[in-house]
Each structure stands twice: as C-alpha cells, then as structure tokens.
Amino acid sequence: MILGERLQSKAVLWPFEYLGGELIKVSTTLSRFFDYLSEMLITLMTPPFRFKEFVTQLYLIGYKSTPVILFSISFAATATILEYAFHMKLVIQTAALVPGFAALLVFRELGPVITAFLLTSKVGAGMNAELGTMQITEQVDALKLLSVDPMRYLVVPRFVATILSSVVIVIFADATCLFFEMVMSVRHLDYSWEGFLTAMNQFTQFKDFYLGLVKAAVFGAVIPTIACFYGFNTQPGAEGVGRSTTQSVVSNAVSIIIMDFILTYLFSYLY
C-alpha cells in the first residue's frame, strides 16, 4: 500500500535529510522573520499613528477576550493550589506555607503564562486567520494599491493593543487567581480569610507583581508579532490558512515558554 511505502522511505532517510531540510526551512523562516520584525519596529517608531485602528483593536482584543480568559484561569488557579498543597505536604509535611508560595506562583508564573497561552489561541489564532484570509484574497495587495501600508494599518495597532491588553488582563487574572486560591485555602486547608492574606503578605513583595506585568508585556508583544508574521506568509487555499494558523499557535507557545524561561532566569537576580 502506498502509505506504507512512503512511511518506509521517510524513516530510512530520517536522520540527515530530515534534519537538513528542517534546518534550511528554519533558517529561511528566521531570516524572513527578522526582516519583518525590523520593518515593524521602524514603522512603530515613526508617525503617523493609526489611533482609531488601535482603539478598535483594543476593544476586540482586550474587552472581547477578558471573560473567557478569566473564566478559564479561575479553574487553573484551583487546580494549581490543590497540586501545590500536595507537593508542600510531601516536602515540608505541612500546608502552612501554601498561601504564600501560591501567591508568589500566581504573580510570577501562573498569571502571565496562562493568560499568554489563552491569548495565543483566542487572539493570536484569530489575528493570524484574519490576516491570512486577507492575504490570500488579495486584500493586502488592494491596501497597498490604495497606498496604505499594511504594516502601519494592520500590524502596528494590533501589536500595541495586544501589549496593553495583555498587561491589563494579567492584573485582572492575578486578582481572580488569588481570589480562587483564597477560597480553596479556606475550604480545604483550614485557613481563615485573614490568615490567608497575612500569610500572603509575608511572602510577596510589590516587585513580584510588577515583574509579572513585565512578563505579560513581553508575551503580549510576542503573540501578535508571530501571528501576523505567519498571517502574511499564508499560502493560497483553504489548506494554507489552516497550516499557517497551526504554525503560528505552535511557534507562539514555544516562544512563550522560552521567553518565560529567559525572563525568569533574569529576574531571579532581581527578586
């Protein structure tokens, strides 16, 4: 059968041809990505600014995705505190320190990272599909003919709006997570409401909160940049949109994890 043959030939050629092919693909994509990135940053710095577009995007990205993110993150928060309590009992045989550590985790990791993941699928994928459809239906070319710079008109407003939205949503997400963790601590770990807040106060500093927001801003910058890049590079056809969305979601997820690691590593000198 034909599928079998193809499977075999791929498997035989695997190590060298596959790796080499991947390497070439990755390096060409990267070089195009940096071209695009530099162009975007230059457009970002130079006037005129599309203020109206920016406000529209802010509404679409910030307002429209806040409910679903806060809804999901409340469940993530409860799951985390259960897991955390489990591990704390393993290590120090007591759940006494759970609120403090959980709050730290919310500010430093959970809030920004889970929000970024949810933004990737809610906003990033949508942005990518929108631009991809515009690209393959030649709307982007039409914009150029009307002497509108797609970079200025489409990408920059989304870029700025996502950064701002991400920061604001993370503030709300932090609050939501803390609230649900408080509820869980009171119900399952025999804390009083005041006790939770006191324990939290001992462990967290204001620094934890705003460094988390710095993370959020960085993730907010990564998501639209990658989504729009893949959107502009969509190949024609229905398959093209699907494929570019896939690529953008995966690249975003991996970039967020890597950026998170880098930032955590850098911040570990500041805490």
Partner: peptide, 9 residues
C-alpha cells in the same frame, strides 16, 4: 478557517 479557530479555543 473558522473551524480551526473554534478548535484552538
């Protein structure tokens, strides 16, 4: 396109 977005979310 819509399907892919709905799936992701």
């Amino acid at each position: 396109g819509k399907t892919v977005l709905a799936t992701a979310l």
